[in-house]
Amino acid sequence: MPSFPARIVVEDLRKSYRVATRPPGSRAGLAAWLPSRRPWRTIAALRGVTFTIEPGTITGLIGPNGAGKSTVIKILSGILRPESGRVTVGGLVPWAQRLRHVGRIGVVFGQRSQLWWDLPVDDGFALLRDIYRVPPPLYRTRRTRLVETLRLADFLDQPVRQLSLGQRMRAELAAALLHAPPLLILDEPTIGLDAPSKLAIRAFIRDLNRQDGTTILLTTHDMHDIEALAERVIVIGDGRVLADSPFETLRATTLSGRRLIASFDGPPPTLALPEGVTRLPATGQTLALDFDPARIAAPDLIGLLTQAGGSAAPSPLADVTITRPSIEDVISRFYEHHAPGP
């Protein structure tokens, strides 16, 4: 099928929902059944979201529950129409030119299936071939490659409802890619999967981007997916873009500290801590320190440990480990700093 530059442009995107509410109490509950007396409130899901995604990149779209991620994904997929703002995907407006648009993208929703529940996987592939009007030579090539890469051969003849979650997600990925879309949108693709299945899907997504140049937009609550795959992270909160940068930049500006764990062949030395270093509780022959690398370099801190002494001769330094904050810690701290006000 013809390719296109899968460039995504989002400008000042806004979307609100009107939802019914029910005050407490039986009388108020009965009154809420009358449309003329039913109370409503408006929820602003998106408040001027703006970003651009270039072709051939992997971008992570993250945020807490209710931040607006799913609304963005549904608008980009052509499922929802925004109230205002400009959106183009490969030059098309998703909701206005939906038939052309959906034929040029692949979408995987981790909690929904595009395959037919009671049909064998291979029959579902054949139906999608006809829906997308995939030419037979391209279909045969794509199907063969996807079956081999995602290891689908053992369950192609099984109904989708009989598959394990990991098998179903691999089949869903193949189904979304049979028509060779230049853009793949993934919403929680590894939700509920065990570690080997997650690693396999991450490796497949990475290879798809490198070999085919497929543009990938990934939204997930599994921050290890983001760290392993995304070149860039867009953080959405309260319907706004809170950050848009490579993850390492986000880490450096949010939680740049390091942790040093030192083991000694005896009691740890007494140590006058310089500025930017905090001693943590530790036991036995271990010393744990948090430090700011912008204020003291790791080699200088290790040098202090090897030279420090106490009332007796210093114990030899046996081992040193330096770790960075986990991605979960970084994102949690970022959310704390950008929590919406009352």
Rank of each mutant, 00 (worst) to 15 (best):
S3N: 12
A6L: 08
E11L: 09
A20N: 05
A20V: 09
R22P: 00
P39G: 12
V49C: 11
T50M: 08
F51K: 08
T52K: 09
I53H: 04
G56S: 12
G60A: 15
L61R: 05
P64D: 01
V72E: 06
L76Q: 08
L76S: 10
I79F: 10
R81F: 02
V102H: 03
G106Y: 04
V107C: 11
D118H: 14
F125Q: 03
L128I: 05
I131Y: 13
I131N: 00
Y132F: 15
R133P: 04
R142Y: 01
R145K: 03
A153S: 15
P159G: 11
V160K: 04
V160G: 08
L165E: 07
R168F: 03
R168W: 00
L183S: 06
I185L: 14
E188L: 11
P189Q: 10
K198L: 03
L199P: 01
D207Y: 01
L208K: 07
N209S: 12
T215P: 10
T215A: 12
L217R: 04
H224T: 13
I226R: 01
L229D: 05
I236P: 08
D244R: 06
S256K: 13
I261K: 13
S263I: 01
F264V: 01
P267L: 09
P268C: 11
P269A: 11
L271W: 03
E275Y: 01
V277T: 01
T278Q: 14
L280E: 14
P281G: 12
G284K: 08
Q285A: 15
T286W: 01
T286K: 10
A297T: 11
P299H: 08
P299D: 08
D300M: 04
G303F: 04
L305P: 04
S311I: 03
A313I: 00
P314Q: 07
V320C: 09
T321R: 15
T323W: 02
T323V: 14
R324K: 13
I331K: 05
H338L: 07
A339E: 13
